[in-house]
Amino acid sequence: MNILQIIIFTIVKILIVVTIILLAVTYLVYFERKISAWAQNRIGPNRVGWHGALQSFADVLKLLLKEDIVPDAANKPIHTLAPIIALFVSFTTYAVIPFGPNINVFGFSVPLVVADVNIGILYVLALTSLGVYAITLAGWSSGSKYSLLGGIRSSAQMISYEISMGFSIGGVLLLSQSLRPVEIVQAQSGWMWNAILQPVGFITFLVSAFAETNRLPFDLPEAEPELVGGYHTEYSSMKFAGFFLAEYANMFIASALIVTLYLGGWQFPYLDHFGLSNGWFAVISVITFAIKVAALLFFFIWVRWSIPRFRYDQLMNLGWKVMFPLSLLNIIWVAVLIMVFKL
């Protein structure tokens, strides 16, 4: 492939991925409301479209038409910049996550990942570490003490859990011997899933992912009873929608990342032994990936409506005194696996 063809294929892949993320986020909000209604014995949205299926589109339209109010005490440029950073981080992180095997298009072998780079995992870590700025700056620039408290809480929380997240990934990297997400997926063929080989690392990563995406039980940055609303108290209209969108997109990306790192990525166990043609192999792989991500997203929502919010000191204790030592222990366990069982 020459440069022009690579650019065209990449642009097409970017368009597909962004469209899928936007659609997934829209329906994620709908399913969150439906599942919460089911958990609380309510009906949930059921007026717009078939069983309320168009509710999210109506909500987006409403947010677009609302008046955008910026407080007098706010720092206006940064107040606008914060949701843009949040969206930027959410959408660019997905670039390195593979969602299928190589496929043949017009005689070219195209990998189903936007950017197949050899520092992929570090790229994800770099971008998620920038995600803190969106929330911190939103809290600071609003000129309100509740927003500021929410922002500071959130940065402390995200920095604390980034450590156990990074160490959990260390175990995965030891086994796959690569930072390239495609190779990490290939290293988990059959049932050699990292979630099975290193369950402790899987759990610490999962918990850290909840904290990094500010989901319940760790949604302290937006604890309504204490902080009115949290870092986005002073946001309205489409800027608020930006944060909302980024939060759900982060959830989607966290699920995709967990699937890639721990649940075998797009691989269906022993599918290559079934003697399928290339096309069907790719289709089944992509569907497998989608099902795994959907199952994790359901888990995210399920936990939200089952477990109450942690207190701030409990959150910090869990992060530093439980998750951090456990993730270190996991690295030692993986080293034992490699040295003793020659994996």
């Binding site: 570090l122 790229y123 770099a126 570490s129 920038l130 911190t136 600071w140 500071i152 940065s155 920095i159």
Partner: peptide
């Protein structure tokens, strides 16, 4: 220098500058 490039973002932009912002805000 891919490793240095990513470390630059993770360590300086992602960790140290967050602490700077904390101090400035408080």
């Amino acid at each position: 220098a891919q490793f240095i490039a990513v470390t630059q973002v993770i360590v300086y932009a992602g960790a140290i500058m967050v602490l700077f912002l904390f101090v400035i805000m408080l």
